[in-house]
């Protein structure tokens, strides 16, 4: 009695992309030491083997999909919509944008200010307000991180 799980929305497209990626890896491996397979002991031999393994395992996965029931969607557009709503809800989109903004600000504003801003803004957003406690937690956290990493672990901060 094996449990036959349904395919997830977007799973077929993702696996096809991974198959394309595997083909790309195989091509890149084939180009090592000039185009072509030089010898069984060349720098490209093991990478070519990995490329083949990637392609074969992905073909097995895609073949296995054929036995699974399709997701309950109506057309590609609906499948894309379901995929986005299941895996990219608003908190993930907003938090990702904040994280990218934080990395971009790190170099111009420095670690302490940008981290303080990121921690404060993301905590306020994820906790739906609570300005004062978020500010206190962000401040205390940055102080602990600074002491721990610069004084104790002697690590350079961004």
């Amino acid at each position: 009695m094996s449990k036959q799980t349904k395919l997830q929305p977007g799973e077929r497209a993702f696996n096809l992309l991974l198959l394309l990626f595997s083909l790309g890896i195989f091509y890149e491996a084939y180009r090592i030491s000039g185009p072509g397979f030089e010898s069984i002991n060349s720098p490209g031999a093991f990478p070519i083997g990995l490329g083949i393994i990637l392609m074969l395992s992905m073909i097995v996965i895609i073949t296995g999909q054929l036995r699974k029931p399709k997701p309950d969607t109506q057309g590609a557009l609906d499948e894309a919509r379901q995929f986005l709503s299941a895996h990219f809800p608003l908190p993930i989109v907003v938090f990702s944008a904040m994280a990218i903004g934080y990395l971009l600000l790190l170099e111009s504003l420095g670690f302490i200010i940008s981290t303080l801003l990121f921690l404060f803004a993301s905590m306020v957003y994820l906790r739906h307000g609570r300005l004062v406690s978020s500010a206190v937690i962000a401040g205390v956290s940055i102080a602990i991180i600074y002491i721990l990493f610069t004084l104790l672990f002697q690590v350079y901060l961004p």
Binding site: F95, A99, L103, L119, L126, R127, S141, I145, V155, P158
Partner: peptide
């Protein structure tokens, strides 16, 4: 609170 802190630790 934990998730933003994990991200900062990952960056450091």
């Amino acid at each position: 609170i934990l998730i933003p802190l994990i991200l900062v630790l990952c960056v450091v």
